[in-house]
């Protein structure tokens, strides 16, 4: 159940970030006026794959604290590899240096978007809990 919740949450964040970057890329870099609907399914599929791997890599429990930075580095590299592979298969970029760099930049932007979105959400939860703890102490 926890795995499913984690999978759905990760998929939602990653798909949203991926769609945002796709919109920016198509609008400003592709030179196209319209896109094929398949790109939406490709984004969803990518979100599902990345969401699944993320849920596997970050279980709800039993995650030793010291491993976290290393786990994040592995996670970032895995996400990059998955997006680059899928992007190549979907025809999102060509094997040229500018195209690959643009794609890598997109991965970094989506990763940062997901990371800061979740960080802000958790910071908000911590603030609420801390406020309640302070009020209890005052009582």
């Amino acid at each position: 159940m926890n795995f499913l919740k984690s999978f759905i949450r990760n998929t939602a964040y990653i798909t949203t970030g991926s769609l945002l970057v796709s919109a920016v890329m198509v609008t400003f870099f592709s030179g196209l006026d319209s896109i094929k609907s398949v790109i939406l399914w490709q984004n969803l599929l990518l979100g599902l794959i990345c969401g699944f791997v993320s849920a596997l890599l970050f279980p709800e429990n039993n995650m030793p604290k010291l491993e976290s930075p290393l786990r994040h580095a592995v996670h970032f590299l895995l996400m990059t590899a998955i997006v680059m592979l899928c992007g190549y298969l979907f025809g999102w970029y060509y094997l040229s240096l500018p195209s690959v760099l643009l794609m890598l930049g997109s991965v970094a932007v989506v990763y940062a978007f997901v990371y800061f979105s979740t960080a802000m959400q958790y910071r908000d939860i911590a603030n609420k809990i801390n406020k309640e703890l302070e009020e209890r102490d005052d009582d």
């Binding site: 970050f58 995650m63 976290s68 994040h72 979740t118 958790y122 939860i125 809990i129 801390n130 703890l133």
Partner: peptide
């Protein structure tokens, strides 16, 4: 709970 001073978020939803 009464012994917690404050909490801070860690990676991936843990505190």
């Amino acid at each position: 709970i009464s012994k917690i001073k404050r909490i801070a978020p860690l990676f991936n939803g843990r505190f």
